[in-house]
């Protein structure tokens, strides 16, 4: 935190310190440096491993990449004709995630604005604790709620034949991502200097004008990060969607259709796929696909942030 503009002062201090302290500092520096690099190493390592397991299937004559991406026929254990098409699962992942975001973003950002700008100190503390508790509920518990409570409610109020479907999965995922969006969004709003608020109020802005024209533009990067982490949670979630979406290989035509997501499919099938078989490699290829999806989402967000900055 201290400014280091006074360099002669620093040099004096350095000379006055004993050798072991300097060595200790060096070691610490190297350690922290390694910690920083390790994140990159891990990401590359995971990508390498997943791709290495998936790669051999690409050259296989029975496997075609266009079938993998554009066919909805998923028959990995068929005795007559094995087919590996994940189009229905891509559609499943996108539909559930999109619905979850439509529900979670307004609630999440709204909640963040309320906690940061409107409520009193006591409510604020209580709300923050409760929201964090919500974030700590394990995903399998959410899945259980989806399978039992939510599915009955959906059958009762929509007349759908089955309660485990896109709507159920979307609501459950929305409930799981809202706490993340709220707590990170609230941090982003808190980081806007109070001088902005004071200047706005001094200029005679109403609360609404202040939030809409000053705070939201000032905190947009942080808010975008909050939404993105919410999306990441929704795309990557496995257990809850496995239980709540019905796990049916089917391109959804309405909110009340059952779907299967890419993640749930990997979770359900990797355990039984013999190591090194085509089925096993195709599941890893699905992992690569998930990797690419999140990569594109992150990249798009990065460009968006840059675009906003330029304006």
């Amino acid at each position: 935190m201290e400014s280091n503009s006074t360099s002669p002062n620093l040099a004096v201090r350095k000379a006055a310190r004993p050798g072991w302290a300097l060595a200790g500092e060096r070691t610490l520096e190297i350690l922290i440096h390694l910690c920083g690099i390790s994140a990159i190493l891990f990401v590359l390592g995971i990508f390498f491993f997943v791709f290495k397991e998936a790669f051999p299937v690409l050259g296989h004559e029975k496997f075609s990449l266009s079938q993998f991406l554009f066919s909805q026929e998923w028959y990995p254990t068929s005795e007559v004709n094995k087919r590996y098409g994940v189009l229905a699962m891509i559609a499943g992942t996108f539909s559930v995630t999109a619905l979850a975001m439509v529900l979670a973003v307004p609630f999440g950002i709204g909640g963040a604005i309320y906690i940061s700008e409107f409520c009193g100190a006591k409510t604020k503390e209580t709300l923050k604790i409760v929201v964090e508790l919500l974030a700590a509920i394990p995903s399998v518990v959410w899945g259980f709620i989806g399978l039992t409570v939510m599915s009955r409610l959906i059958v009762k109020y929509t007349g759908a034949p089955v309660g485990v479907n896109v709507l159920n999965g979307g609501i459950i995922l929305a409930l799981m991502s809202v706490p993340i969006i709220v707590s990170i969004g609230e941090d982003a709003l808190k980081a806007v200097p109070d001088s902005f608020r004071e200047a706005g109020i001094a200029l005679g802005a109403t609360r609404w004008q202040l939030i809409w024209r000053v705070l939201l533009p000032a905190a947009k990067n942080g808010l975008l990060a909050a939404v993105l982490l919410g999306v990441a949670r929704a795309v990557g979630e496995t257990m809850a969607v496995l239980m709540a979406t019905g796990h049916a290989v089917h391109i959804p035509h309405s909110l009340l259709d059952s779907v299967r997501t890419l993640t749930a499919n990997i979770a359900a099938e990797l355990g039984e796929a013999p190591v090194g078989s085509d089925h096993y490699r195709v599941l890893f290829l699905t992992g690569v696909l998930l990797f690419l999806i999140t990569f594109v989402v992150n990249l798009a967000a990065d460009f968006m942030v840059r675009g906003i900055r330029k304006k």
Partner: peptide, 25 residues
């Protein structure tokens, strides 16, 4: 040995199958 029709709800346990059938007329 023919394949299953796509679009069935594939449950992850014997009990879940019976539960879903019990709650779906």
């Amino acid at each position: 040995k023919k394949d299953f029709k796509l679009g069935s709800r594939d449950m992850n346990g014997s009990k879940e199958v019976v539960e879903l059938v019990g709650s779906t007329p």
